[in-house]
Design a protein around this nucleic acid. Structure first.
Lengths: 243, 243
DNA sequence: TCAAAAGTGTTTCCCTTACACCCATGA
DNA sequence: TCATGGGTGTAAGGGAAACACTTTTGA
């Protein structure tokens, strides 16, 4: 949820949007050897939420997800995938929405469309932490990275959504080779291994990892070297996009 | 789509249902060494469609999918999983729905809820062909198995939905060991291999397959033997449910 | 000179492949 | 007895794991 309220408060019937359908985006980043997700905070409510939005009746659902991702990060051409539909009736909880609106001095009518039951399509995205520009929406007062290890209590079932997104990421990491989307253009083998270890939450064997990754034939060595530490300088690698 | 119209024609506003949200179920069966899916046919329209339905406002989306599966097959406790949300705006096509209604002598008003844009959650199910009892809904005149190799042209994007369901099945076959759901309680190793070969659409090596499957430790030999052919009688195996 | 990180070579182990052989059965 | 399908034994091959050795760098 987020960006869900720009102009919507005055639009009590949700004209122009698909009714009862929301998008929630788990946007992963990697920094300081930690997996992070983008969260919105709502002023004076102590509420935290995943970035999200609704679907215009003129766009595809997947397009809406890309729009949400762009609005919160300024990024396009990013790995973004559906992973689950959250449709339990127990999700229906009007309290947080009312609280957010109340702080803004709005008391929605009981039949306001945002207070109805919503089904949410969960998306997860992998972004380059250094390139994303976290941007709050019109009714949240900040948009920030939070470490996966110390997430706050989130609105509704958003903690569950993140959990399921992480499981999907772990399961697809090797299969779809999506991990690279979390790194900068050039990176060392150590960076990549550290990323894998963080996502999978287990140590990997250095020599085996190096051979396995290089064996995929999807990295090129960019001749350049890194400098700084009291040790041998590692090579920088770059992901080879489709030839 | 199916079962979507029981009582709904008279309910032009879709009261009691989540608006704009549908469920489509790709129900796989296995018979005569062929993968089959359950389809509904609509009288006098030449239209074919996947079984489907809508979500009551008193039930979870996953519950609604189970209900659809039960209504069309009489089965419960069946493998059933979400695999994708079909939400492109190009799906919106009122022609087939109008045709179906027209045959029944109904002309829906232009703002009838069924003529609005729908987003559909795709589910796929794996059922024992011998146990399912295909049952048409109130407005289709038959519900039958169709071989995947000779599917008719289906309503809307239902051919695409089946294609994507099959890809999901292929990708998850080994990982989640879901293939067993398509067989009878007791089966020979040949049956199982034939099933795998059909789903994956490639030949497997007999000896390797047998060792691989038995190596999983999830089958028990039921001592009994099969009879009939001019060759050694194969053992029957049974899937060991959680111990 | 030393510690630490990086790259690579070597050996072992295991799973898959490939091939073969034996068994059971009915025509 | 013969063809056919079913179960299993054995050896080869490929990749991961485990370990070690070398290289590079700054303190």
């Amino acid at each position: 949820m987020s960006n869900k309220f720009r102009n919507q408060e005055a639009n009590a019937h949700g004209h122009g949007y698909l009714p009862g359908l929301a998008i929630d985006a788990v946007i992963f980043g990697f920094h300081d050897n930690q997996l992070k997700v983008l969260l919105l905070t709502y002023k004076n409510t102590g509420l935290f939420a995943l970035p999200g939005g609704f679907v215009h009746d003129t766009e595809d659902v997947n397009e809406a997800a890309r729009r949400v991702l762009f609005d919160r990060t300024g990024l396009t051409n990013i790995f973004l995938d559906q992973f689950y539909v959250f449709g339990d009736k127990s999700r229906h909880d009007t309290a947080p929405l009312k609280a957010i609106m109340a702080v803004r001095g709005v008391t929605p009518p009981d039949d306001h469309w945002l207070l109805k039951r919503f089904v949410s399509v969960g998306y997860y995205a992998l972004v380059d932490f250094t390139k994303a520009i976290p941007t709050p929406d019109s009714i949240s007062d900040s948009c920030d990275w939070f470490g996966l290890d110390n997430l706050p209590e989130l609105m509704q079932d958003h903690n569950l959504i993140i959990k399921k997104a992480l499981e999907t990421l772990q399961a697809n990491l090797d299969q779809k080779l999506i991990g690279f989307n979390l790194l900068t253009d050039d990176f060392t083998m150590g960076d990549l291994q550290s990323l894998y270890e963080t996502i999978l939450n287990k140590k990997l064997i250095r020599a085996a990892f190096q051979r396995k990754i290089l064996g995929l034939g999807i990295l090129e060595r960019t001749a350049k070297k890194w400098t700084g530490g009291a040790h041998k300088a590692p090579y920088l690698y770059r992901f080879i996009s489709e030839k």
